[in-house]
Design a protein around this nucleic acid. Structure first.
Lengths: 191, 191
DNA sequence: CCTTAAACTTGACAATGTAAAGATTGCATA
DNA sequence: TATGCAATCTTTACATTGTCAAGTTTAAGG
C-alpha cells in the first residue's frame, strides 16, 4: 500500500494521527481505520501495535499527559518558593485546558470515572500532576514550618486540586460566559 | 413486532431505556438500536421522535439534569439563610455525582466542551444549577448587606462553583483514594 | 540460505447510525 | 360516517467501524 512494507514507526505515527483527528474533528471521530489510513497502512495494521482501540486511546492519553506534565513542571521550576510554584502550577493547569478543551474531556472523560461496572484497578493517587502538586505542597509545609497529619494533608491537597481542576473544567464548559480571565486567577484561592 | 403498532409513549420509553443502559453498561454501550429493542420497536422507530442519536442523548441529559435539579432545590429549601443554602447545595452537588459517577461524565463530557470545531451556540450562563447558585449568591449578598460589582459577583460565583464542581469531578475520578468523606465538606470552603 | 517472529494485508463479519420507501394508525374534518 | 392526512412505525439498504482469521512480506539471526 505504501512505499515500504514496514512503516518504521507505525506505533508513534498512529498516536500522532489520533491526536490530529481528535484536535481537528473531536474525540468521537477517532477511529482506528482513519488513523491507519492517515499512516497509509491497512485498516488492520494497528492491531500489530495495539490490542484494541482502547489501547490506542490509552497511548494517546499518555502522550497528552506527558506534554501537560512538561508545562506543569516548567511552571513549577519558575517559582522561587513552594507557594509561588503552586500558584504557577494552578495557573498553568487552567490555562492548558482553557486552550485545549478537547484534551480535558479526553483525559478526564469516559474511561476515567469510577466505573461501578468493572472495578478492575485499585484506586491510587498516582496521577502525575497530583504527585507533582503533593511534592510542592510538602515543600510548602516545610518552608513555612507547618505540621499536619496525613489526613489533614490529604484533605488540603484535595481542596487545592478541586479548585484548580474545577476551574479548568468550567473553563472548558459550554454555557459559561468567558468574562473570566483564566490567566488571572486570584492567588488567595490557591494556598 | 409488539402487541400494538403505536407504542403510546415511545419517546419517554426510549429515554428511560437509554438511562438504564447507561447505568448498567456505561455510556459507550448506549445505542439507538438497543434502546429501540428494549422498547420492542424496530431499530428505525426512534427516528420518529429524535433527529439522531445526538438528540436522544440530549433528551436523556435533560432528564438527568432535572433529577439533579430537584435534589439541589430541595437541599436549598432546607437552609434558613442563603449561606446555609449554598453549603447544602454544595454538599448535594458533590454527593449526587459521588453516588452517580456515570452521570457526571455523561452530563459534562463530550458534547459539553467548547468545541472549537463548530461554534454553533452562543455561550451563556444558563445552566440550571448555575442559575440556582447565582440566585442563592445574590440572596447571600443581600442578607449580609454586601455590595459587589457585576464583575466581582461573576468571579466569586465561578470560584464557588469551581470548588464544588471540582470536588465532584475528583470524587468521580479513578486514581483518587477515597479517604475523603465527600459528605463532610469543610464549610469554610464554600462562602 | 533458511527459519522464524514481527509487521502488515486482505477478506470477512457483526454492530451501529442513518436514509428511503412503504405500511399502519388515529384523528380531524368535510 | 367516510375520507384524507399526518404521525408513527417497519423493512430494506448502505456506509462506517471494531475485530478476527488467514495469509504475505520483511528483517534478522543461526
Amino acid at each position: 500500500m505504501a512505499d515500504v512494507y514496514h512503516h518504521g514507526n507505525l506505533r508513534q505515527a498512529l498516536i500522532d494521527a489520533g491526536i490530529k483527528i481528535i484536535n481537528d474533528y473531536g474525540e468521537e471521530s477517532l477511529s482506528l481505520r482513519k488513523a491507519a489510513a492517515m499512516c497509509n497502512v491497512s485498516h488492520a495494521a494497528p492491531y500489530a501495535h495495539f490490542k484494541d482501540k482502547e489501547e490506542l486511546i490509552e497511548a494517546i492519553k499518555n502522550d497528552v499527559t506527558e506534554r501537560f506534565m512538561q508545562e506543569l513542571e516548567s511552571a513549577v521550576e519558575g517559582g522561587a518558593s513552594a507557594d509561588e510554584a503552586i500558584i504557577a502550577m494552578g495557573r498553568t493547569y487552567v490555562t492548558f485546558f482553557s486552550k485545549n478543551p478537547v484534551y480535558f474531556v479526553f483525559l478526564f472523560g469516559k474511561q476515567n470515572i469510577k466505573a461501578h461496572l468493572k472495578m478492575d484497578k485499585e484506586y491510587k493517587n498516582d496521577y502525575p500532576p497530583f504527585l507533582l502538586l503533593r511534592r510542592m505542597y510538602l515543600k510548602h509545609l516545610e518552608e513555612n514550618g507547618l505540621e499536619k497529619t496525613f489526613e489533614e494533608q490529604e484533605i488540603e491537597l484535595i481542596k487545592i486540586w478541586s479548585i484548580v481542576h474545577g476551574m479548568a473544567s468550567i473553563a472548558c464548559m459550554k454555557g459559561v460566559k468567558s468574562s473570566i480571565d483564566w490567566n488571572d486567577i486570584d492567588e488567595r484561592l490557591l494556598v
